[in-house]
């Protein structure tokens, strides 16, 4: 394993030290392991908290700031944060108007956020959890853990963050996050596996001529292993799976062509060109987009495509100013 790290056990803490040093707009608490907007809590503002395993940078810590998250709690690499952390983030941003938890749908995340919410209620902080489950690669069923939360998390954090920034009420902020989740789908593809520092070796082995379709963002294998394909074929597989689950024809969409960490931007732009063509051929119009690394899986090569069917209100909230280390416009 070759990584730019010091001690395997300190990677998350060292990254947080770097965030603290690099971003004066953030308050980084190394003890509690939370990253908080330096102006939090703001009285009367609904707090927006997210968190999850580390290794998906810039998600979530890189999305803390004006118009997006109020706090993030990074767990160990690919491991949900613990309730204490989530509680610390929740109290740090509570301005009396309640706190929304954006939770990616993984058993660990759901359970730890649930425990934290109970603890927060004990401190009289109203918490509304919104669970993101946009990954169409996973068959949905009430008998299973359900779909994973992946790329749509960025959409939900940005759009709910804009509403919270403009003074939206607790139910509305949670509501718009849920609406984004319902209108969004994602599908990811891996060309290589990634290596969790503590594990020291790649999570799975992929042959030189193989790729994984339907991967998650935690280095877990996907739903199908197939032969190497072209970018056009990969984009087709991803968008077909999304379109089958949520017909896109006739929609104005927000599209994210997201790198998993180890794929050059050049290739992501190539994939975006293919996605644009595919969508145009299927009656959908891209009106907003992100191309780059937003929800990564350490140094995994590959990409994930996320699509959100916009409404005029969602577009307006998307366009609202945002100022975070990972996403910035309008100020």
């Amino acid at each position: 394993m070759k990584k730019l790290i010091d001690a395997v056990d300190d990677v998350v803490l060292d990254a947080m030290r770097g965030m603290a040093a690099a971003h004066p707009s953030l308050r980084v608490d190394l003890e509690q392991r939370v990253i908080v907007r330096s102006d939090a809590p703001r009285t009367g503002k609904v707090g927006l908290v997210s968190g999850g395993g580390s290794g998906h940078e810039p998600l979530h810590g890189g999305f803390v700031g004006y118009g997006m998250l109020d706090a993030a709690c990074p767990g160990e690499v690919f491991t949900s944060p613990v309730p204490d952390q989530i509680l610390a983030a929740t109290t740090a941003v509570s301005g009396g108007a309640g706190v929304v938890h954006i939770v990616k749908n993984y058993t660990g995340d759901v359970l730890n956020f649930q425990m934290a919410a109970e603890l927060a209620e004990d401190e009289d902080i109203e918490v509304v959890p919104v669970v993101i489950d946009d990954d169409v690669a996973v068959q949905d069923s009430t008998f299973t853990a359900g779909r994973r939360g992946t790329g749509a998390t960025v959409f939900a954090e940005k759009i709910a963050g804009a509403l919270a920034e403009s003074g939206g009420a607790l139910a509305d902020v949670a509501g718009v996050a849920k609406e984004v989740n319902e209108r969004s789908r994602s599908f990811g593809v891996a060309l290589t596996a990634c290596t969790v520092p503590a594990a020291g070796r790649p999570t799975f082995d992929l042959g030189e001529d193989e790729i994984e379709l339907g991967i998650g963002i935690h280095g877990e294998p996907g739903r199908e292993r197939v032969g190497l394909r072209t970018a056009i074929e990969i984009v087709d597989a991803a968008l077909s799976a999304i379109d089958e689950d949520m017909p896109l024809s006739g929609s104005e969409v927000l599209v994210m062509v997201n790198g998993m960490g180890g794929t050059p931007l050049m290739e992501l732009y190539g994939a975006y060109a293919a996605a644009e063509k595919w969508l145009a051929g299927h009656g959908a119009t891209i009106s907003r987009r992100l191309v780059g690394n937003y929800v990564t899986s350490l140094e995994m090569a590959g990409c994930m495509i996320s699509v959100c069917r916009l409404t005029p209100r969602l577009t307006e909230l998307w366009d609202a100013p945002v100022e975070t280390p990972g996403l910035r416009w309008g100020r």
């Binding site: 395993g53 767990g75 491991t79 949900s80 613990v82 309730p83 660990g108 359970l111 730890n112």
Partner: peptide, 12 residues
Amino acid sequence: LVSKTGGASGPL
């Protein structure tokens, strides 16, 4: 365990 483990196994 709840405070230090994280993941699914911590709460469970």
